[in-house]
Design a protein around this nucleic acid. Structure first.
Length: 596
RNA sequence: GGUCCUGUAGCUCAACUGGAUAGAGCAACUGCCUUCUAAGCAGUAGGUUUCAGGUUCGAGUCCUGACAGGAUCACCA
């Protein structure tokens, strides 16, 4: 049984025995004791004064005395105002440590038999990935790992937006200005090549608009009548009709993009179990519209358009099918939701999509629940804030974006020069060194984007945002490398740091105890991160853990320690910390080096 | 304008979901490498938690109203 659980149960008994009052375990909770007070757990007695009918101090004292007497682990207590601070014996902490140390993988809770799909990335195929996509991809991958560690079976899905007016724009521009350019002939990655023509389209389109405006058309007319735009619209019609030449060009350009994406995904370290393509799904959902009409969830207006009325849920009326019978954005999402369920019979479905689509998903989920879908309550929009630059919002058409490939490379280069400056690569082969730079550069980038609460909008300053010191990925990686070094030496010297090497040890230094407390928290954090869909909780925890370890490292010596039991224990404590850091970082999709 | 999200040290972020004197990192300053990796450790300084009310033993956290920033409100995706 967990230590905290045991204390809470004893508290429950205390209320029964001392005050003849029944409480549930859920009524009682412990919080960490603040650093300036003696103790590890604190029980706040204020809410129970009505039950104890005593003043706060007396209540705390009564409960504290009961705990010391009836709970072996509790060795002392003190009461400050209404706060009962509980001290746990050092031998209890030792046995807590023995328990967690025996677990080979701290980041793996038993299977819960449930299936969840996490849809993330979901790029458009007309341009390369940028900084905003990085946040999406890292979040999606990390949340998948976290859910898996919590016992879910996870299907990582990517719904590729491969059709529509945007890709037609790139195609039109390529037709006019491409001169049969290919990734090979241009030396450009396929996604960058497609993006180049998307930008060209916009540039030429704007020229045409200005020309038409100078001929007396309004802005609105000009936007509609510009030949390039009309051509793009026509191309979309041809595509939908399956016209072979158009489809051929579409396939050719998309394949270039996919090759480019594949490289970037590989570099980012993210992966998918299932790809969906909108070219396959964009016609789905019409049967659901029919179903909704039959069930009375939807209604038809005079012109034949179909709507859902969500005013009773605090939203508005929303169109789900046009008067001419064609789909809108949400129509296909209705269909895709069912498709996912039919493919995998999932219990939960998570959509990692920016907060600009909050309203859309609110509507989508409410509709699915009204339709009585079995997975309705398992739908979740992991909504994250935009990544802004100091110059403001990123706009891909205007070229004010931080390109994902460029940024990753920049991070790796920075890691390289920083590492060389510190002179830390003695004895590294070239391959090892390069792999280290990649680990550190990506670690810094991923940690930076994941440590912030997903729903918060964040600022990215290319010059200043990425550091290698303080609350950063490399700081945590460094802590791991330090421990790895200790373990190498311990193995070399032949120190036994398995449990029997320090059995019977009862004396603990404060930093050692603090480390055990933190290590013991990992499971709780893991659950919380899954409940909140928040890798930031793991990131924050790992920083705290690394920080605490570095304090321990600075304060106490291992190899100069005369008592061999203490020595073995400190190495075991180090090993457990490394294990936890490695497992936790893996949840974030970050590797940790053994040397740096 | 309606709805939703956000507002905490100069900057970037925490605060265990209502608990004690609001904590870290960066930047600044002071110490610590003849000892296991100084990408580290210890310390100093930095705050009316945007503002005004309210709820209660207790509010950064909940409620109301301002103010500021962002998103969204198409027979676009």
């Amino acid at each position: 049984m967990e230590l905290q659980e045991k204390i809470i149960i004893t508290l429950k008994e205390a209320f029964k025995s001392l005050f003849d009052h029944d409480l549930t375990v859920e009524d009682l909770s412990l919080q960490p004791t603040r650093k300036e007070f003696e103790g590890t757990f604190t029980f706040v007695v204020f809410p129970f004064l009505r039950v104890t009918k005593l003043n706060p101090e007396a209540s705390g004292n009564k409960l504290g005395e009961y705990l010391v007497e009836h709970c072996d682990e509790v060795i002392a207590f003190n009461v400050v105002k209404g706060f009962l601070n509980i001290s746990v014996s050092e031998s209890s902490w030792m046995s807590v440590f023995q328990n967690i140390y025996a677990n080979p993988n701290p980041a793996l809770l038993p299977s819960n038999g449930k299936k969840v799909m996490v849809e993330y990335s979901s790029p458009n195929t007309n341009k390369p990935l940028h900084l905003g996509h990085l946040r999406n991809n890292f979040l999606g991958f990390a949340v998948s790992q976290i859910l898996e560690a919590n016992g879910y079976e996870v299907i990582k899905a990517n719904l590729v937006n491969d059709r529509g007016i945007h890709i037609c724009k790139s195609m039109v521009a390529y037709k006019h200005f491409g001169n049969e350019e290919t990734p090979e002939s241009s030396g450009l990655k396929g996604d960058h090549l497609a993006g180049k023509y998307y930008v060209i389209f916009d540039k030429e389109y704007k020229k045409q608009i200005n020309e038409l405006k100078s001929q007396g058309q309004t802005e609105e007319e000009a936007k509609k009548n510009a030949p390039l735009m009309m051509e793009a619209q026509e191309m979309l019609r041809l595509w939908e009709a399956g016209e072979p030449k158009t489809v051929g060009l579409w396939k050719k350009m998309n394949n270039w993009v996919y090759e480019g994406f594949e490289q970037t995904y590989k570099k980012m370290g993210v992966s998918f179990d299932k790809f969906y393509y909108e070219s396959d799904t964009y016609l789905l959902g019409k049967d659901i519209v029919e179903e909704g009409l039959k069930k009375g969830v939807f209604f038809k207006k005079e012109n034949g358009s179909v709507w859902v009325d969500l005013t009773d849920e605090g939203l508005d009326e929303k169109l789900v099918l046009r008067a001419d019978g064609t789909s809108v954005y949400i129509t296909q999402d209705l269909g895709t939701a069912d498709l996912k369920y039919n493919d995998f019979s999932i219990d939960k479905s998570v959509y990692v999509v920016g907060n600009e689509q909050d309203y859309h998903f609110d509507v989508l989920f409410k509709i699915m629940r009204k339709l009585g879908r079995p997975y309705g309550d398992g739908l979740h929009h992991l909504s994250y804030g935009m990544v802004d630059l100091p110059t403001g919002k990123m706009k891909s058409r205007e070229g004010t974006v931080v390109d994902a490939d460029d940024l990753i490379q920049e991070m790796i280069d920075t890691a390289e020069s920083h590492t060389k400056e510190l002179g830390k690569i003695d004895g590294f082969s070239e391959d090892e060194a390069n792999s280290l730079y990649e680990t550190l550069g990506l670690g810094a980038l991923k940690y930076f984007l994941l440590k912030v609460d997903p729903k918060k909008r964040m600022l990215f300053n290319p010059q200043e945002s990425i550091e290698f010191q303080g609350n950063t990925g490399p700081f945590i990686q460094y802590s791991h490398a330090r421990i790895a070094s200790i373990l190498r030496k311990a193995n070399q010297v032949g120190i036994d740091y398995r449990t029997d090497g320090f059995d019977g040890l009862t004396k603990l230094e404060p930093t050692e105890r603090d480390l055990i407390v933190l290590l013991n928290d990992f499971g709780k954090k893991l659950r919380l991160a899954a409940e909140d869909y928040s890798p930031a909780i793991i990131a924050q925890y790992l920083f705290d853990l690394a920080k605490e370890y570095n304090r321990f490292y600075a304060e106490l010596s291992i190899f100069n320690e005369a008592d061999t039991k203490v020595q073995s224990f400190r190495i075991a404590l180090s090993a457990q910390t490394a294990k936890t850091i490695k497992a936790g970082m893996k949840l974030l999709g970050i590797n940790v080096p053994d040397r740096m």
